[in-house]
């Protein structure tokens, strides 16, 4: 499970960064996925089409990847519905309150050398590490 995959990580990272760069270069938009998704959920956003297109692409990308690779991707996720719901609620609320997630603050914000994004990124990485530590090593999940 915990195998280090440096090559695919670097290639994938370049694709992610390239995608964020492309959206900015062509459309002038920051590829912050919680913001793009949130703009859809929250009523009043007049510019829905590009958001839907980007999010559809996000699903098409892995399908494309699966089509060219023969074996199904490794995938491990908790089967606990209460845990999934609690996590989803926290991710939704937190990313709106903090104005961004791993893509908007983590990738785009750090690339723009934004101090706000650095603070946000340090906040969510630190709390995620503490959460995993508590869940796995103190409560023993």
């Amino acid at each position: 499970m915990a195998e280090f995959t440096p090559l695919s990580a670097l290639i994938g990272g370049c694709l992610i960064g390239g995608a964020a760069g492309l959206l900015f270069w062509l459309d002038g938009r920051i590829a912050g996925i919680s913001g793009i998704f949130g703009g859809l959920v929250e009523a009043g956003a007049g510019d829905r089409y590009w958001r839907v297109a980007f999010l559809a692409g996000l699903v098409l990308g892995p399908l494309l990847h699966a089509a060219v690779t023969a074996r199904p991707p490794a995938f491990v996720v908790t089967p606990s519905l209460p845990l999934l719901v609690a996590a989803g609620l926290l991710v939704g609320f937190g990313t709106r309150l903090g104005h961004g997630c791993t893509s908007g603050h983590g990738v785009c914000g750090l690339a723009r050398l934004s101090r706000r994004s650095l603070v946000a990124t340090l906040s969510f990485f630190a709390s995620a590490v503490v959460t995993v530590f508590v869940a796995r090593h103190i409560l023993g999940g």
Partner: peptide
């Protein structure tokens, strides 16, 4: 919209490739 779709595909591909 087409540009956003292309960027989304590339982004999703990157997430999938990097697992």
């Amino acid at each position: 919209v087409v540009a956003a779709l292309a960027a989304g595909i590339l982004f999703g591909l990157g997430l999938s490739v990097s697992q």
